[in-house]
Design a protein around this nucleic acid. Structure first.
Length: 276
DNA sequence: ACCTCCCTGGCC
DNA sequence: GGCCAGGGAGGT
């Protein structure tokens, strides 16, 4: 589940291996994984020979600043992960994109469902890309309760899909949105505009606490192990989840059965007693 | 401000 | 065999 903690954990491990390295070659095995280019060759041509100056993150997008004002963007989608390896080591199935740097190290983008993607933007293209429409990063730039209140004031949509929208805050996905709402004691179907300032203060704190916890444990690897850290280890946050994936199990706070319903086509988990 | 669709693998 | 899954874009 690549959401903010998984992408950030991935970014931190990649940073040590990739920053200040020159991209020696790149390979695209699944053309579909390269978005917003006429053909995959354009991505390869734009990144090859350039040096990685910095590795950043905004929401669930990972951004590598390359020399000559090119930004290499990676998104892990639903089922993507990154594997860091030495060239020649056995490849995991569904290794769809490979980027090699000096020293025989390569970054492999592994993604069975191919909902993830890479792209290489010029400065102008980046400004016109979907990235430009992201809200503030939920971890680095979490808005104040007052700012959240202003953003949500006129919104009638339920708070859960608003948290997934990426325009109010960027980086929460289906797991961490459910977790943060539980921690805040707010029901997922509450209209966004109905949250009081006090509730928004709780929500804000809960987002921070939830993301911190996810990061501390290396993110959430579910049973299918679709998400793994770049070194192949599993994230250990799954066993500490409060509500996600715990339908019918007792709420860790009050013992009430955790409920699950579908909201805007996404499974939504909450405690009907703790969350109002 | 909604749905629908994009894919594949794993589970029932 | 059908259903479900971490996300986002695109169209209505």
């Amino acid at each position: 589940m690549p959401e903010l903690p998984e992408v950030e954990t991935t970014r931190r491990l990649l940073e040590q291996a990739l920053v200040r390295k020159r991209i020696v070659s790149a390979e695209v095995r699944r053309p579909r994984m390269v978005r917003r280019h006429e053909n995959p060759g354009d991505f390869v041509a734009r990144v090859t020979g350039r040096t990685i100056l910095a590795l950043r993150r905004h929401g669930k997008f990972m951004l590598a600043d390359l020399t000559q004002d090119i930004t290499w963007v990676t998104h892990l989608g639903m089922s993507g992960r990154v594997s860091l390896a030495r060239t020649g080591e056995p490849e995991p199935a569904h290794t769809n994109v490979v980027v090699r740097v000096g020293g025989g190290v390569e970054m492999r983008l592994v993604d069975p469902r191919t909902f993830g993607f890479v792209a290489a933007y010029t400065r102008d293209e980046l400004g016109a890309s979907p990235l430009a429409r992201l809200g503030p990063d939920a971890y680095e730039s979490l808005p104040s309760a007052e700012e959240l209140e202003a953003q949500l004031a006129a919104r009638t949509a339920p708070i859960k899909p608003l948290l997934l929208d990426q325009t109010v805050v960027a980086g929460l996905g289906n797991i961490y949105a459910d977790e943060a709402l539980h921690r805040a004691g707010i029901a997922p179907d509450r209209p966004g505009g109905s949250l009081t300032l006090d509730e928004l203060r709780r929500l804000r704190r809960s987002i921070r606490t939830t993301l911190d916890a996810g990061l501390r444990w290396g993110g959430t690897s579910l049973d299918d192990l679709a998400y793994l850290l770049p070194d192949g280890r599993a994230g250990e946050f799954a066993s500490r989840l409060l509500v996600y994936g715990r339908e019918g199990e007792p709420c860790r706070r009050c013992g009430t059965d955790v409920k699950k319903a579908v909201m805007r086509q996404r499974g939504t988990h909450w405690c009907p007693n703790c969350q109002r």
